[in-house]
Amino acid sequence: MASVDGVVLCVVSGARLAVSADQVDAIATAEGPVWDAGVAFGATSDPAGRALQCLGRLIRFDSIDVVATVGLPVLPVPAALVNTAHGALTGFVELSGTLWPLVALDRLLGFLEARSR
């Protein structure tokens, strides 16, 4: 079973998202051109929220938290959801009984880019 070491937990419009820490270049303030992660849930993120920097681009969330984990099991994506969000959904992690969808930031950027068109 796949696992992940260190996750960044993001909350936007009450929905949860987890990102593998190694995909994140930096956690920054949401200034300048940003991609709104709220779009993935049909909502809008807080303009004063934080952003994750990835591949030189910023994705804005309402709040961001970093959790240091070692070998955190990644639950596989159900068959019905394999193509969801341009395949950005890579699995689920369970922290303290709460399920967090784990996403690949580069594909999420692609999905957000496609939605905004």
Binding site: A15, R16, L17, A37, A40, F41, L75, P76, V77, P78, A80, L81, T84, A85, H86, A88, L89, F92, E94, T98, L99, W100, P101, V103, L108, F111, R115
Partner: peptide, 24 residues
């Protein structure tokens, strides 16, 4: 748990006996 980019009929997922199940 809500899933990013999901269709409207996909209400979310829940973990059951170590498995993630989509609710339709």
């Amino acid at each position: 748990t809500r899933v990013p980019g999901a269709a409207p009929h996909l209400l979310g997922v829940f973990a059951h006996r170590g498995e993630v199940l989509p609710v339709i």
